[in-house]
Design a protein around this nucleic acid. Structure first.
Lengths: 167, 167
DNA sequence: CTCAGTGCAAATAGTTTGCACTGAC
DNA sequence: GTCAGTGCAAACTATTTGCACTGAG
């Protein structure tokens, strides 16, 4: 219990699994195969994803480890509540990314290939609290997406990806 | 035709109507009662709105000036193409605001009453181009939404509005 | 008089829900 | 054994589309 886990760059006291267990226990909810499968899958890589691409990547119906569509949606909502995932909207669909153990960041969004590029900016956080103070506003979070064309696409490798998903 | 129109704070050479007419002409599209009604309504106030609240505010079915739901959606898309409106996502639905003749700005979003408060920040634009340069990214736009609780709601006047819409 | 635009109803995409069965505790 | 969780099908919300009719040029 004294070990620190490093996911991305933020040190956290618990693994995502332990964190989920804690969350579930505190709410009288149960740890199930489905929740564990989804957690494993989601935290096995740092990636932006939507419900659909997650479902595609998981074992398909009938196979070991399959999770039904409604359960995927339900569980993603739980993970967001548990502080494990962050949700944001991109082009009308919900996108998810790691929240727990992963530093706050923002995105460049390529309109050509849909790629998301992460960046971090302390200035933005300053700007945020400055604006909030001016407007007597109590900030809980923010979302900045800068859209445009990435370098690869400007060089001509166009329309190579259809969905967001960053390596 | 030499008159300048001031909408918000940016001076533009054409009224929104003239701008739309130009856009339509350039595409072989026609000026119709529906397009004119929607344009009038949309540019009669500076407001954030979604398709649903626009439809609610327009004359209802049967009455003079009514526009059907599909046409509202079609026309909003055209207005976005024409550079008259800007579209952004908020809680899974499309929100629209003036683009033409209205200065670039961003929003504080109250999670309690759904109110949107506009703010403008030149620093943000600097930050934007800085980040873009670092990532060799060609920027075409951005969207920043800072979420939290507005002053009114912190003072206890809660859940008074259901939809976004700022006076 | 022609072709773009409209309204209607139906389709679609993403997501959520009701319900009877299953399995974690 | 009990109650939370699941899968299924169906519902739901926001938006788009096909088609026959209407009206702007």
């Amino acid at each position: 219990m004294a070990e620190d886990f490093s996911l991305g760059t933020v040190k956290v006291a618990l693994s995502p699994l332990a964190r989920l267990e804690e969350y579930l226990r505190s709410r009288g909810m149960r740890m199930t195969q489905q929740r564990r499968c989804l957690l494993d899958h989601v935290f096995s890589r740092h990636e932006h994803f939507d419900a659909d691409s997650l479902i595609e990547q998981m074992p398909s119906s009938g196979r070991e480890g399959h999770v039904s569509r409604p359960t995927v949606y339900r569980t993603l909502n739980e993970f967001v509540d548990a502080g494990l995932l962050r949700r944001f909207q991109l082009g009308g669909r919900s996108m998810y990314e790691h929240d727990y153990g992963y530093p706050q960041h923002d995105h460049l969004h390529c309109l050509e290939c849909q790629k998301l590029i992460e960046f971090k900016s302390d200035e933005l956080l300053e700007l945020r609290s400055h604006v909030a103070r001016e407007n007597r506003f109590h900030v809980t979070g923010h979302r900045l997406i800068i859209s445009g064309i990435c370098e690869d696409c400007r060089r001509g490798q166009r329309r190579m990806r259809r969905r967001a998903g960053v390596g």
